[in-house]
Design a protein around this nucleic acid. Structure first.
Lengths: 231, 231
DNA sequence: CAAAAAACATGATACAAATCAACTTTATTT
DNA sequence: AAATAAAGTTGATTTGTATCATGTTTTTTG
């Protein structure tokens, strides 16, 4: 079955969230009157796993990671690019607590929207609710893809997958400057820093990619895709 | 941080779906007039990854697994117990295709609800939509937990986690008869059949559980919890 | 009810990836 | 500008888990 083959990490979610377009002027004003915009510096924690969720967040500028913190390990659930909502999971959640942390990969601008206002609008505008369902489902599909990637593929496959994903979804170019450190990149790929470096070198030696520090260039897209499919 | 420690698989979702209670008589009739109930035998495929999603499903009786099929491996995303919706992910999905397969662990009864009727009700009843958002979010939290478990814990921890989860959420007893074969149980735990057998034996030798074929009895819940937390 | 197939079980071996150790280069701080 | 810390890199070693091989028990089937 062909479709089964195309399981990609899809570490990155929607291109751009458009749900607010289904709000009327009044609802939009209500939202706008109940939000604050905050700047977060590179590396800063935007929201902390286990704390009470009082806001839904909207990333208006920057790049962030959503991750779970265990006792020793952390798991990056997804990367959130600009113009996307963060923290929807806490919307209707009996515990009312964030199940994950969010941190800024680069300097970021975040709008904090009062969660109760958000809930109120949801309950009165079914079109808006449908849009949110749409977003939640897109997120679920993406998470399943990454779940599959991280559990079923081996290291080279995961690495290829994530390189392609970043190129396709974040940078939208075959040539880009990685905004993450090697340690962050390793964490994202679910492996150790040492191994990510070794494996990147292998890709470089095999002429699949060109690397110079943080500058990446994809040379053989198809071969990487193949390694991602099974590598 | 204490909360971080309590990451459990939560392979199993909501106890019971109650969203239909927010429908009025008319909407309920609409749904009921547009569904069929189908029986699936143990092992049968209820829905196949890659096929067009024409229905949302409601498991009225039985036990099923939701899983992704790769080229060689399969990943069990979650277990769905009785009285729960299946296939919500396909509701608002540009591809309109199931991203996963569903199969019956035991003989099961499934109500197939026309997806367009379901969408229609969603768009006209914001309360219902909110309930669905609730369900989707509960599912996401659960998936994140299992994602963490399968990627960050090692085999003994995963096994302990899943035994506890089945006991707590499915059987609701310390003593139960496992409905899955060793192969299915291994697949669920993300390891090979050989290893699951070896490790169960270890748990048995260590007097953490009692096993006789498919009959399981948890002897040391706390110790298993500890192994699950880090094992 | 015998034969075939599937499920269950156990030991030996192989291997992918983590860990450990040490060293270099690049930032950050004082 | 020197000192310190962090990030990046490479090689050697260890280890958890899969794979392979083989045998036993249970279930299914003709």
């Amino acid at each position: 079955m062909l479709i089964g083959k195309k399981i990609n990490t899809c570490t990155v979610g929607l291109d751009r969230c458009t749900c607010f377009e289904s709000l009327n002027a009044e609802e939009l004003e209500l939202i706008n009157n109940n939000l604050v915009e905050v700047e977060f510096k590179k590396g800063e924690t935007i929201c902390k796993q286990g704390t009470f969720a009082t806001h839904v967040m909207y990333l208006s500028k920057g790049l962030t990671k959503v991750f779970m913190e265990g006792q020793q390990d952390t798991l990056v659930l997804k990367i959130i690019p600009e113009d996307n909502l963060i923290g929807l999971t806490a919307l209707f959640n009996e515990t009312n607590v964030f199940q994950y942390s969010v941190a800024a990969y680069v300097d970021s601008l975040v709008k904090l929207i009062d969660i109760n206002i958000f809930r109120q609008v949801l309950k009165q505008n079914a079109k808006f609710a449908s849009e949110i369902i749409n977003i939640l489902n897109a997120n679920t599909v993406q998470t399943y893809g990454r779940f599959f990637c991280l559990t079923q593929k081996q290291a080279y496959g995961r690495l290829a997958d994530i390189i392609l994903c970043l190129s396709d979804r974040i940078y939208k170019k075959k040539e880009f400057e990685l905004l993450l450190s090697r340690r962050e990149f390793a964490e994202l790929s679910g492996m150790t820093t040492e191994n990510v470096i070794r494996m990147l070198k292998k890709f470089k030696d095999d002429k699949l990619i060109q690397i110079d520090g943080k500058k990446f260039k994809i040379l053989k897209y198809d071969k990487l895709q193949e390694i991602s499919n099974y590598g």
